[in-house]
Write a protein that binds this DNA or RNA. Structure first.
Length: 279
DNA sequence: TGACAGGTACATG
DNA sequence: CATGTACCTGTC
């Protein structure tokens, strides 16, 4: 167990930020009276199972020192100063100030590339509960089973080969709808090497985006999400229906120049604010 | 009932 | 290049 005192970190906000679909409350950890008093969340990522508990700024991770240093510190982007991003926000920009105040505990995660590609193909014209349901179904059907530190079984995210080997019909049965053929095609493209996932982390944001756009079911918005949430190009700025509405608040245009290099962080604050009514 | 959910592929002008 | 439309499925 690792204990840390963390600023600008809120595991609940991260779980509800819509960038990760396998981070969720451990059942029974939330109390109605004080929902934020002691939140415990479970996460399956990078083949591992982790639990995270938070009380105020005290955060504990159910892993060894070595695992924390080699994986989770980076995964949760704990070595980046998010306070600096917030301070850079125009003091007169009340919208962004408010968004950063509400969602200031969000971190941009470093998720697995293949998993992020699949989950964001699924995310199109979809809602969070159903995305989670689809992702769970994929893991249950095609993911390798492992045992957690609690001696309970969990499933890792299925490899490209597993999805390349299935059929559109099978994926439709799992509730993927019209995204089923996208997934099968994209998995096959990856297995055939039409897009080299190994090479993507070495590319800059623009080149990576260009490569990702070759995949079936990946358009500009999904490609930007993958750049932001997996490749950690925090300058990527995915524009969806909510963010489009937000951009209309800036008749002169959103001040991208001011936030060059980290606009994606602000996108997440804004997205979180815009989608609060879901909870 | 119909619109909407973190869009994209595909067909046209 | 810009615009228009169909598309699974669950929920309000």
């Amino acid at each position: 167990m690792i204990r840390q005192t963390l600023k600008d970190f809120d595991i609940r906000q991260i779980a509800e930020s819509g960038q990760c679909f396998r981070l969720r409350p451990v059942s029974g950890s939330e109390t109605a009276s004080e929902p934020n008093a002691n939140d415990t969340y479970s996460l399956t990522a990078w083949g591992e199972y982790l639990e995270i508990s938070q009380e105020g700024t005290e955060v504990s991770f159910s892993c060894t020192e070595e695992e924390f240093e080699s994986r989770w510190k980076s995964y949760f982007d704990l070595e980046t100063d998010y306070g600096g991003f917030k301070q850079a926000i125009d003091p007169e920009d009340f919208y962004l100030q408010e968004a950063a105040r509400i969602g200031g505990g969000i971190r941009i995660l470093r998720q697995e590339l293949w998993e992020t590609i699949v989950t964001f193909i699924i995310s199109q014209q979809n809602n969070i509960p159903r995305i989670r349901k689809c992702v769970d179904a994929l893991c249950r059907e095609f993911g390798e089973e492992r045992e957690s530190f609690r001696k309970e079984a969990y499933r890792v995210f299925p490899a490209p080969e597993a999805l390349a080997g299935t059929s559109e019909e099978r994926l439709r049965e799992l509730g993927l709808g019209y995204r089923a053929p996208y997934l099968v095609k994209t998995a096959r493209m990856v297995c055939e090497g039409a897009v080299d996932l190994e090479a993507l982390p070495g590319l800059d944001c623009e080149k990576a985006r260009e490569e990702l756009l070759k995949l079936c079911g990946v358009g500009v918005k999904v490609a930007d999400c993958i750049c932001l949430f997996a490749l950690h190009h925090i300058e990527a700025f995915p524009v969806d229906t909510h963010i489009k509405a937000m951009l209309k608040r800036y008749p002169e245009g959103f001040p991208f120049e001011r936030y060059q290099g980290f606009a994606g962080v602000l996108q997440q604050y804004a997205f979180y604010k815009e989608t609060r009514q879901w909870q």
